[in-house]
Computed example of a mutant assay.
Amino acid sequence: MIKKKPSVYFFMVAPALLLFFSFHTLPVLQGIFYSFTNYRGYGNWDFVGFRNYINVFSDSRIYNAYFFTFKFAIVSTILVNTISLIIALGLNAKIKFHKTLRGIYFMPNILSILIVGFIFNFIFAVFIPNIAENLGITALTTSILGSRDHAWIAIVIVAVWQAAAFNTILYLAGLSTIQQDLYEAASLDGANSWMKFWKVTFPLIAPFFTINMVLAMKNFLMVFDHVVALTGGGPGRSTQSISLLIYEDGFSGGQFALQSANAVIYFIIIVTISIIQIRVLQKREVQM
C-alpha cells in the first residue's frame, strides 16, 4: 500500500493560518475572555460574569460615541455610494482620457488614512480660514474642527473623499457587465436617460450596490484613523467613535475589561447590521 504524501497545499496554507490565528483569532478570544473579568490591562483580575456587559449601558460616554458613530456611518454610506455611482457612470461613458481618469480617481484609496487626515487637518484648520479671512468670508474664518456641532462634517468629507475610490471601481466592474444591446433596445422603446438608468442599469448592477452598501457601512462603523488625525475625538468627546473610545479607555483608561465587553457588543451589532443589509438588499435584487 502506497502511503500518501502530505499535500503541498497544507504547507502553503499552514504559515498563513498560523499567523492569522496568532494575530487575529487568539486576541479576539482573549478579548472575549477578559470581558468577563475586572482586568484593567495590568495586575490581577477576577471573574465578574456579565457585570461589564451591564455597565456598558450605564456609561453616557458610550451612548455619545454610538450616536456619533451611527450618524457618521449612515451619512457617509449614503454619500459615498451616491457619489461613487455618479462618477462610475461618468467614467463608463465614452469620454476622452476615461482610463487615465479611472487611475486618478483610485489614487486616494492607496494613500495612508492618517497622512490624508493630517493633510486635511491643516486644510481645515489653517488653509481655509486664512483664505476666508483674506476674502472677507467671516463664516469660514474659524476652523470647522473646533466646532462641537460641525466637526463631524469634516470627518465625513475626508472619509467619503477617500472611500469613493474603491466604491467607484466596484461600480465600474458592474457597469462593464452590461451589454450595450440592452440600451439600444431601450432606446427603440422610447426610454430616456433616466428610464435607462432606473430600468436597465440599476437592476443589473444591484449586486454591486449591495456589496458597496454593506462594505461601506461596515468600514464607516469602524472609523478610527480619520477621527484620530482630524479631531482626536474632540472638541470634548463630540467626535469620539466607538473604536476610538475602546482604544483610549481600554488601553490607557484602566477599563480594559469594560471596553472588551463593549467591543464584543459592537462586533455583534456590526455583524447584525451587515446581515440585515444583505438580506434586505438581496431581496430587493430579486424584486427588481
Results as ranks from 00 to 15, higher is better:
264 V>C: 07
40 R>S: 11
85 L>Q: 06
41 G>I: 02
238 S>T: 09
146 G>A: 00
102 R>C: 15
16 A>C: 12
173 A>G: 09
144 I>L: 03
181 D>T: 11
133 E>P: 14
277 Q>G: 08
171 Y>L: 06
248 E>W: 04
118 F>N: 13
221 L>E: 02
179 Q>D: 14
207 P>C: 08
182 L>K: 09
70 F>Q: 07
177 T>V: 11
191 A>L: 06
169 I>M: 10
44 N>I: 15
221 L>K: 04
232 G>E: 04
185 A>W: 10
273 I>Y: 08
260 S>T: 05
108 P>L: 02
22 S>T: 13
15 P>H: 01
163 A>H: 07
95 I>S: 08
1 M>E: 15
122 F>G: 08
153 I>Y: 00
174 G>I: 04
80 V>Q: 06
180 Q>M: 15
86 I>T: 13
222 M>L: 13
51 R>T: 13
124 F>H: 02
278 I>P: 07
163 A>M: 09
61 R>W: 09
2 I>T: 14
22 S>K: 11
45 W>N: 07
29 L>Q: 03
21 F>R: 09
124 F>V: 08
254 G>S: 00
187 S>D: 15
124 F>S: 06
23 F>P: 11
247 Y>L: 06
8 V>D: 13
13 V>L: 08
165 A>K: 01
141 T>R: 11
278 I>K: 10
213 M>Q: 06
34 Y>T: 06
165 A>E: 04
25 T>A: 13
12 M>Q: 10
247 Y>H: 04
280 V>N: 10
237 R>H: 13
